[in-house]
Simulated scan of single mutants.
Amino acid sequence: MNNFCIITNIDKDNEYKTTKLIQEYLTSKGKRCIISQENTAGTNDERTDVSWIPDDTDCAIVLGGDGTIIRAATDLYEKEIPLLGINLGTLGFLAEIEKQDIIPALDCLLEEDIHMQKRLMLNGNVSRNEKAFYDDFALNDIVISRSGFSRIISVSVYANGILVDTYHGDGVIVATPTGSTGYNLSAGGPIAAPGSNVIMITPICPHSMSQRSVLLSSEDEITILIDKSKKTQKEEAIATFDGRMAMELKAGDMIRIKKAEKVTKLIKINKKSFYEILRNKLK
């Protein structure tokens, strides 16, 4: 690898000390390394500006937390650049390299003593009156949740056109294996190994003791129909893709979700297994 870019969450490294350390080290090794100076990855209202990233970039080094990596993965979807995460956040399931291990990790990267993981992504398409009005990708999850305070919504979930269930509650999570340790886990959903070819459907606070998560094949197409639950409220629910872009949904709106054509490539240097990391992170 010869060409690198650094995507920095400025809330985690606001003076670019760690960022510049990495750039200087790579430059001293004869590599090209450019820095995004105005990136706001990890926030809910901004996208990573990828126009500054050359097409021949071999690796994007992402500094921040898992949220920064998730944002970068979506924004770099078309470029398909492998990502290496440096953890400046808290848990760091995706950003596995800790600050004190940066130099040894960079050495492994330069020697290509690495393992490349391919992570499944979701493509979600939102339509109203049979007309699509929003389309995006998600590495973690697509969430349909209630828009009102202290009220429930009703959503019907279909797999390949067949009704799976109708959920009454706070909403539903459609998660990838990568997203299984996020909101899905907090809502009582299962944990899936990163390489699993599954998609999880997990209800959020369902008003039924018998409703639990459902695991589908990654080849299945999921359709979520927003049902009418309150006559006096125009908006029934909101949809978020990896925690961003909250859009209001009305009764009759439909979200079609399927496996994205491309994957996120994560560079793994840490020799620890997913299960060891899981035990350590979740204690």
Rank of each mutant, 00 (worst) to 15 (best):
N129I: 06
V157C: 08
T176L: 11
I97K: 02
N280M: 13
D141H: 13
A132F: 02
L139D: 11
K31A: 11
V143I: 15
L266R: 01
V50K: 01
S127M: 14
M116T: 13
W52N: 12
T8V: 08
P194D: 07
E248R: 12
D165A: 08
T90G: 06
P206H: 13
K230E: 11
C205P: 05
S51T: 11
S147N: 12
G189Q: 06
K29T: 06
K250C: 07
D45M: 06
N123S: 13
K281C: 08
I22L: 01
F137Q: 08
L88C: 10
D13G: 02
C5K: 02
D220Q: 09
L163N: 10
D141E: 15
K258N: 13
M116D: 07
S217F: 10
D253N: 14
T90H: 15
R212C: 05
K79V: 06
N3I: 07
A237I: 01
K31W: 05
S51D: 12
A132R: 06
D227V: 04
K29S: 10
M254E: 15
T264F: 07
G189S: 09
I144R: 01
Y16D: 06
E261D: 12
A251K: 11
A193M: 02
T181G: 07
I86H: 00
K258L: 09
S36K: 04
D165C: 01
I152G: 00
D136H: 08
M200D: 01
K31N: 03
N125V: 15
I191Y: 01
S273F: 03
E15R: 13
I142W: 04
M209D: 03
T27Y: 04
N129V: 04
R146F: 02
I162F: 08
K234F: 14
M247W: 08
D113R: 14
I162P: 00
Q117K: 15
F93R: 03
C205V: 09
E248P: 00
I153A: 01
R119F: 11
N2C: 04
C33S: 08
S156R: 09
I97F: 02
D242L: 11
C59R: 10
I269F: 05
I70V: 15
D66V: 03
L278V: 12
R151F: 07
I22N: 00
A159K: 11
I114H: 07
L91V: 14
A175E: 05
D49A: 10
E80L: 01
K268F: 02
M209H: 07
G30C: 04
T48N: 05
S208C: 15
E80Q: 15
N140G: 03
I70C: 09
I142F: 02
A159V: 08
D170S: 11
N197D: 14
K271Y: 04
E98Q: 15
R47H: 14
R128W: 03
R279C: 03
S127E: 08
V62K: 02
T181R: 12
I86V: 14
N14D: 06
I162H: 04
L83C: 04
M209V: 13
E98D: 12
P54V: 08
